Amino acid sequence: MGRSVNTLVAASVVLALAACSPKPAPVPAPTPPPRPTPSGEATPAPIPEPVAPVGDVDVVASGLDAPWSIVRLDNGGVLVSERDTARIVEVLPDGSARAVADVAGVDAYGEGGLLGLAERDGSLYAYFSAVDDNRIVRMPWSGDPGAITLGEPSDVLTGIPRASNHNGGRLAFGPDGLLYATTGDAGSPDDAQDPASLAGKILRMTPEGGVPSGADSLVHSLGHRNPQGIAWDSTDRLWAAEFGQNTWDELNLIEQGGNYGWPIVEGVAGDPAYIDPIVQWATDDASPSGLAIVNDTLFVAGLRGERVWAVYPGTVSESVGQTAWFEGEFGRIRDVVPGPDGSLWFLSNNTDGRGEPRDGDDRLYSVRLSPLVEG
């Protein structure tokens, strides 16, 4: 299932070149800038110990239908979106799932449907594809685990371009309390370079969908093809996982106002006009969707790659290290989130029309994480 910690240490200090040797080797961009050191007498915060999966993988839930996003509520409840059914389901302690709501207005075709979820201050936010656009809504939620209920949705943001593919769709609240959303180019690559378009962007907004104070627009970064994973590390740096076209998938360190090059460049280009990815993978090795960060270890869900990448951005060695986990064991992996009690949760996606479903698919899995110690 996994591998020993000692093996992982050796593997994580180099790029995972042997994972798929017949394919183009992953090429990292330069190591991200060093963490800033506070001035004066203050002591820098310790860098979190990197972590790795250990032990057996457990099934948290089964029988999910094209699941897309996981949300863990503060009261212990767990909600999952199903792309094609437009249902939000609650995961129960016995591993079953109960339908909580059918989100009105979802028009599921191609890669569109009910996509990302996020939660803040008693509201559940959902990103979905409607007939003419992608949009973000929020719904009040209440109830104890096992009896979660959702109220009527209200619009947060509408008019995000949609198509049969490249709809983006991930939602997350940042350390600044603002809502971030990833959008794809919706099949019109040039729109990713147009600052007036919401396509091919990472958006940043107030919880009500407004432009944040001090900003000129909702656009936080541009030049993206189809980003589907966002998360923040311990120093509040934003990372994003992004589908490439047919050559390179990307893991990017996001800067406000940054241009990530699509469709002019794909992967590491060395062009000073655009920001290179920190890591790139051949598309067969990744097709990255969800992204989670635990102790500054980045876990990236791989769809076509059928694995979870663990990426160590300069914390285990002087260069970016990475290791592939669970390759081919569970099929396509759509989302990954920090789980309870030092675990990592990840979501298979074999019933979406592109995978090969197994009995009981799709499933939500859990694996324990343990510190990764050099030596």
Rank of each mutant, 00 (worst) to 15 (best):
M1A: 15
S4V: 00
V5I: 14
A10P: 00
V13Q: 12
P22Y: 09
K23E: 15
A29W: 14
A29N: 13
P30M: 13
P33E: 15
R35I: 10
S39C: 08
E41A: 13
T43C: 11
P44K: 11
A45H: 09
I47S: 15
E49I: 10
P50H: 01
D56H: 12
D56L: 14
V57I: 12
V57M: 06
V59G: 08
V60I: 12
A61Q: 09
R72E: 03
D74P: 10
D74N: 06
V78M: 15
V78W: 14
L79F: 06
S81N: 09
E82Y: 01
R87T: 09
I88D: 01
V89C: 01
V91R: 05
R98F: 12
V100C: 00
A104V: 14
G105H: 08
A108M: 02
Y109T: 12
G110S: 08
G110P: 11
G112R: 08
G113F: 03
L114T: 04
R120F: 03
S123P: 04
L124E: 01
F128V: 04
F128Q: 07
A130Y: 11
V131Y: 13
R138Y: 10
P140Y: 10
S142H: 13
P145W: 07
P145G: 05
G146A: 05
A147E: 08
I148G: 12
T149I: 06
G151E: 07
D155E: 15
L157V: 12
P161D: 12
R162A: 15
A163W: 14
N165R: 13
N165D: 13
H166I: 03
G169L: 05
L171C: 03
F173D: 02
G174Q: 01
L179V: 07
Y180C: 05
A181Y: 04
A181F: 01
T183Q: 10
T183C: 11
A192C: 08
A192I: 03
P195S: 14
A196M: 11
G200K: 11
K201N: 10
L203D: 10
R204H: 02
T206A: 03
G209K: 08
P212Y: 09
S213M: 07
G214W: 13
A215Q: 12
S217F: 09
P227F: 11
Q228E: 10
I230F: 08
W232T: 00
D236G: 09
R237T: 10
W239M: 01
F243L: 13
W248G: 06
D249E: 09
L251T: 03
Y260V: 03
W262C: 01
Y274M: 08
D276C: 00
W281E: 03
S287M: 11
P288W: 01
P288N: 09
S289R: 01
G290R: 04
L291S: 07
D296T: 00
F299M: 02
A301R: 05
G305P: 03
V308C: 07
Y312N: 04
S317A: 14
T323P: 01
T323F: 14
G331F: 03
I333A: 11
G339H: 07
P340D: 13
D341M: 10
G342N: 06
L344R: 06
L344G: 00
F346M: 00
L347M: 10
S348H: 00
N349Y: 06
N350E: 07
T351Y: 02
G353W: 02
G353D: 05
E356R: 09
R358W: 06
D359H: 14
G360N: 08
D361K: 00
